[in-house]
Amino acid sequence: MTSSRKVVELFYDVVSPYSWLGFEVLCRYRSVWNIDLKLKPAYLGGVMHASGNRPPGLVHNKFLYMTKDLRRLSEYFGVPLSPPANVVEAMFEKGSLTAMRFVTAVAEKETNGDMMVEKVSRELWKRIWRTDQDITKDASLTEAGLKAGLLPTEVEALLHLAKSQPIKDKLKSVTQEAIDYNAFGFPLTVCHVNGKAEPFFGSDRFELMAHCIGEKWVGPQPTKPIAKI
């Protein structure tokens, strides 16, 4: 292991279940690998549009595979995924723009690394991908923020901030960063090694990622016990 910490950026959107898997694994490895993990909330819809990609939920055979795949991955990674009753509505009709602006607002006011960004993001993932709840309304974002540990006054201020032009511009900017790395979906993990950016798509590239940064992959749950999600 080298002495210098590698910067690892995770671009993600809470509407993506595969992003949740990548998010949890990298959060676990933050204390295992010699890395400085940077959480980068972005907007998946913007990446899909810019790249011309088509969501798997809109391709029938991919959708059928995805539902089976997520069940297996949930068990393997120890992440309690449970797809919403109407995946297409939750992912593509309602979308996540409001939620990701809220997370971006949290990131903008973060004073303790990415701790609150991590907690709020996790609560939003749990709402859509565990308990089949809304993530588009202010009341939904409020509930997620409170469960993450924010005070009612803080949530109110963040909801107001999330509607501001600077936050909208910030989310666009971070999304553009992902696009500039040739992103076509999330999660996108970018490892910075010896002055070079190495992008990895998906939640199934951890062994290759470890090789790239000079670390070892020891499975999806490297330490025991792991905090309950």
Results as ranks from 00 to 15, higher is better:
residue 182 N to H: 03
residue 163 K to A: 14
residue 196 K to N: 05
residue 218 V to P: 02
residue 75 E to V: 13
residue 168 K to Y: 11
residue 131 T to E: 07
residue 57 G to Q: 07
residue 193 V to T: 03
residue 189 T to G: 02
residue 26 L to D: 04
residue 4 S to R: 14
residue 152 P to N: 11
residue 198 E to S: 03
residue 149 G to S: 13
residue 209 M to Y: 07
residue 146 L to Y: 11
residue 33 W to S: 06
residue 49 H to A: 09
residue 80 P to V: 05
residue 49 H to V: 10
residue 145 G to W: 14
residue 101 R to V: 14
residue 105 A to G: 08
residue 152 P to L: 14
residue 168 K to E: 12
residue 50 A to T: 10
residue 24 E to D: 01
residue 229 I to W: 11
residue 151 L to V: 15
residue 25 V to L: 02
residue 75 E to A: 06
residue 76 Y to R: 04
residue 139 A to E: 15
residue 28 R to A: 08
residue 162 A to N: 12
residue 134 D to F: 09
residue 167 I to T: 09
residue 168 K to T: 12
residue 150 L to Y: 10
residue 217 W to L: 02
residue 179 I to P: 00
residue 71 R to N: 12
residue 80 P to I: 01
residue 6 K to S: 11
residue 151 L to K: 15
residue 92 F to G: 02
residue 166 P to N: 10
residue 58 L to T: 11
residue 49 H to L: 12
residue 67 T to I: 15
residue 11 F to P: 00
residue 211 H to E: 10
residue 201 F to D: 01
residue 113 G to A: 13
residue 221 Q to S: 10
residue 191 C to E: 07
residue 107 A to P: 07
residue 187 P to H: 00
residue 43 Y to D: 01
residue 128 I to Q: 05
residue 73 L to A: 08
residue 192 H to Y: 08
residue 217 W to V: 00
residue 115 M to W: 11
residue 177 E to A: 03
residue 59 V to A: 11
residue 22 G to I: 03
residue 79 V to E: 01
residue 100 M to Y: 04
residue 55 P to M: 09
residue 39 L to S: 01
residue 66 M to F: 11
residue 111 T to R: 15
residue 43 Y to V: 09
residue 222 P to T: 06
residue 187 P to K: 01
residue 57 G to T: 08
residue 35 I to Q: 03
residue 191 C to N: 05
residue 62 K to E: 12
residue 18 Y to K: 03
residue 111 T to N: 13
residue 62 K to Y: 14
residue 156 E to H: 08
residue 227 A to E: 15
residue 198 E to P: 03
residue 92 F to D: 06
residue 30 R to C: 08
residue 116 M to G: 10
residue 134 D to K: 05
residue 169 D to A: 12
residue 42 A to L: 04
residue 99 A to N: 02
residue 107 A to V: 12
residue 192 H to I: 14
residue 160 H to F: 07
residue 130 R to T: 11
residue 16 S to P: 00
residue 141 L to C: 05
residue 59 V to R: 12
residue 94 K to W: 15
residue 70 L to T: 08
residue 220 P to D: 06
residue 98 T to K: 14
residue 83 P to C: 05
residue 1 M to F: 13
residue 125 W to C: 01
residue 20 W to C: 06
residue 11 F to Y: 09
residue 36 D to M: 09
residue 8 V to W: 02
residue 193 V to N: 05
residue 122 R to Q: 10
residue 166 P to K: 12
residue 108 E to K: 08
residue 121 S to R: 00
residue 27 C to E: 15
residue 172 K to M: 13
residue 226 I to A: 04
